[in-house]
Design a protein around this nucleic acid. Sequence first.
DNA 1: CCCGCCCTGTTAATTGATTAACGCGACCCT
DNA 2: AGGGTCGCGTTAATCAATTAACAGGGCGGG
Lengths: 349, 349
Amino acid sequence: MPDRPTLKTVAAAAGVSTAQVSYAFNRPDRLSAASRAHILEVARQHDYAGPDATARSLRTGRVGAVGVIFTVGLSYAFSDPYTLAMLAGLTEVTERYCAGLVLIPFDVGGTGDGDAVHESLDAVRRALIDGAVADGLADDHPAVQALARRRLPLVMSSASASARSVLIDDEEAGRQVGRHLRGLGHRDVAAVVASRGEPGTLVHEVDEAELFPYSRLRLTGLRDGLGPGARVRVVSAGRNSEASGRVAGGSVLDAPDRPTAIAADSDVLAAAVLREARHRGLRPGVDVSVTGFDDVPAAADAGLTTVRQPIREKGRLMGRMLLDPTFEESRVILPTELVVRSSTGPAHD
Amino acid sequence: MPDRPTLKTVAAAAGVSTAQVSYAFNRPDRLSAASRAHILEVARQHDYAGPDATARSLRTGRVGAVGVIFTVGLSYAFSDPYTLAMLAGLTEVTERYCAGLVLIPFDVGGTGDGDAVHESLDAVRRALIDGAVADGLADDHPAVQALARRRLPLVMSSASASARSVLIDDEEAGRQVGRHLRGLGHRDVAAVVASRGEPGTLVHEVDEAELFPYSRLRLTGLRDGLGPGARVRVVSAGRNSEASGRVAGGSVLDAPDRPTAIAADSDVLAAAVLREARHRGLRPGVDVSVTGFDDVPAAADAGLTTVRQPIREKGRLMGRMLLDPTFEESRVILPTELVVRSSTGPAHD
DNA sequence: CCCGCCCTGTTAATTGATTAACGCGACCCT
DNA sequence: AGGGTCGCGTTAATCAATTAACAGGGCGGG
């Protein structure tokens, strides 16, 4: 018996039909206890590990796992506190449902041209999942569209025409930051946002459509909150990492017309900006004001003024949308809250 | 056409055999460019997302994903620096191979009796993977055995009779710690190890067999390194977390016969012990010596004497063992290095 | 005594693809 | 003209299970 045993093998060895073996593993109530015991015993003797997962999935149409799309390198994602908090919430739920979690890389390295996109979509197309979470992606993202074509249940964290979503009101959050800064007298603000551009480069108005959807909304809110007459320059931070944040922050701080405040799109970026500021002898909240986003644990330590969002709860709700059949809402909006700490203060130039 | 389209649908609509459609998606060289273009066009019109992932997996026997078994809650794992570093290395490789990563919960909550084990094994049995990584688990762990029965390629991080492995020499690492402490004059040491027991309780010699395999080996090495005549008490830390570490550390520090040194099984536990020590007014490296394990980034900040192991490289190698067909070795032993910092110092009682 | 139901068990259709083997013209070479 | 090869397609077996529908024996009730 060199071959891997199958249901058929076991059925033949036990002298019953394959249906009986299947029932023995899946529906104890459909056969007598005696024959179930016998079948399981024969299975053990043949070292049969139970029904093949792939075949069962094909037949039942269920896989028992949900996916998460990652548009940045996975090995980087594991160092991002926002992502980790979201995943922690998500896995609380998947675990309760005994579901696996599939991390799907969508890594369009380099130019991002048609072929590269096509290639990296393979992982999305081949992923064995019952549904997926696309955090921070827009409806028109190729990975999202590929999933939609597969007709898989999808949960997003930005407003979507078709998919269910768990959101925050990004525009309002941006407005909270804008109003706070305006109240402190800031009229010249740099927004540091993750984007495809090189860290430290300016994002022109026409390119703002290319930003992540949440960045666009926060920008709109920020401008609104600052009111008319304020200047808002948008600076690309490349990816959302410490290193990129330092480059972007440095370029803003070294500009001849340095803004009085810097609103970063995440606490990770904001913390990097803070470090660069201190490095230049600038006192946060005095010489320059800095705000973040998310309120990850490190923000409190850094004295960072930031917008708190319930990240873990977001993950939990996304998970429930996918797995809990009694969860009906197709859109949940979570509250945000401006947390004022020492990194912001009155403007003076 | 309310149903999800299949290969057959598309073949019929395009007026070709299903084989052609399959080739159009998988083997462009097996058909003329014209008919390939035609088929893909028809597929698009019918909103066909490409061959069904499950069916393809059944037929080809390949899934395109590898699994990682977690014996602690996933949402907790995301806060453990060792796990994150290992995953970062692992995903570097899976990403290169466009493979998904499936996080498989094996969460035997509560008593851990037969039924609960059986139940939580379901996720392991049903996981759609081509192979798996079992970090820190022993050959006789139920989840490992379930995977072995499925005849899936398996990579472990402890010595295994059957599976391939990427290891460190845990016994030698323990010995390094032991010798270091002996050199400082410590003759009474507490080893704080993760285990199933309640944090803070003593682990009796007979129960040591129940510990994680790496803990056992390190203990053996530690005793050997300390040499004859030294006392080593083993204290359970429950799970490998800050909270558990504080409980375990507190109980050791409050014991009437407090040891002069505490060797923790991870930097996370050691950092917790350090905090408890400081909290009691004990100066690390002076009033009490503490060692960790892993050398995660936080260890340097905490001034922790610890054993460095190349965690990320471990993850990378595990991934290559699973995915890189040119990687032949079935056992790799990585080097460790004792990093002496300020948390250890001469013993005096 | 007969009808119908329950309990166990079997038959066989189905899930959606992959791919080896083979068929059939057209073309080339000698 | 005969035979070999090449390009392009089709046929049909196979992957390993699930499950609706059905069959027959035993048994209780009328």
